[in-house]
Design a protein around this nucleic acid. Structure first.
Lengths: 141, 141
DNA sequence: TTGAATGCAAAATATTTGCATCTTC
DNA sequence: GAAGATGCAAATATTTTGCATTCAA
């Protein structure tokens, strides 16, 4: 559990109970939560935690490269502590977000050099989203 | 110019000056504008146009499949009348958005079937963004 | 003429800022 | 002790809703 203290220190951040809670939760979950849902999930563990602190903390984590923030296109920002480049698949009905595993996971990354040589850009990273209906929603709609 | 009247009719929409203006502007531009910037660009052509109508109209256009809406991850929604599947490249500094042309354009689409067979999802479409620094910002930062 | 589209204002949503207090180092 | 983090409240930014008026078919 105190491994998260080390993570924070490694990134040059002060260790506070709130920060430990947030990075621990994000590291354990696979649900790509939003700021709001992170707050809802952990507020009971830290009585005085404020939503505002979650926002501020996530921004700091993102700036330091500890977590990634992405927008799947429904006015919702999601956070992910898995920093390995990987694609996501989104259910347009229930809005759940899953990782894409296997050799398609880093599809975008594999073409960065090629994009770079075919454009005027210096390319740093990519985001690849697939949209469809998940197992549960497929049969309903 | 009256071709846009036809487009609207083909999609089963009533033809209003505002709608013609919006679809015409979106069809001509390559700048992937936001609702706000569309409003700013065309408001002089239609004195009483309201930002609200731009929002409402874009939502209708999107629902009918006339335009696409996407979020590049900086709290900004962009609209695109080019409905051909194509990837985008985004400058993380100045936030400009360019199309990716050539054979990398439909990279995401090419893997939809493969993603489908490797997941529990029925996949409809994809969004692929590359992030970096554009020609102008590359030298500045 | 009638149902839909518009524009205004107000409301809702999500996120950010300012600042006093408290905590970490 | 000093710099940084927190929590509260207020502000901001963006988008949506309600509704009376206007317009397209």
């Amino acid at each position: 559990v105190e491994q998260y203290m080390k993570i924070l220190k490694d990134y040059g951040l002060r260790v506070t109970p709130q920060r430990k809670l947030i990075i621990e939760f994000l590291s354990r979950t696979r649900s790509h939560p939003t700021a709001e849902s992170i707050f809802e999930e952990i507020k009971d563990c830290s009585p005085a935690l404020s939503l505002n602190t979650v926002y501020k903390t996530l921004e700091i984590f993102e700036q330091r490269g500890m977590v990634r923030k992405f927008n799947i296109g429904f006015n919702i920002y999601h956070y992910d502590a898995n920093m390995n480049p990987h694609s996501h698949i989104v259910c347009t009905n229930c809005k759940r977000v899953d990782d894409i595993n296997g050799n398609l996971s880093n599809l975008g990354e594999r073409f960065i050099k090629e994009v770079e040589s075919n454009s005027d850009y210096e390319v740093f990273y990519s985001d690849l989203f697939f949209y469809g209906h998940c197992k549960d929603c497929r049969h309903t709609y």
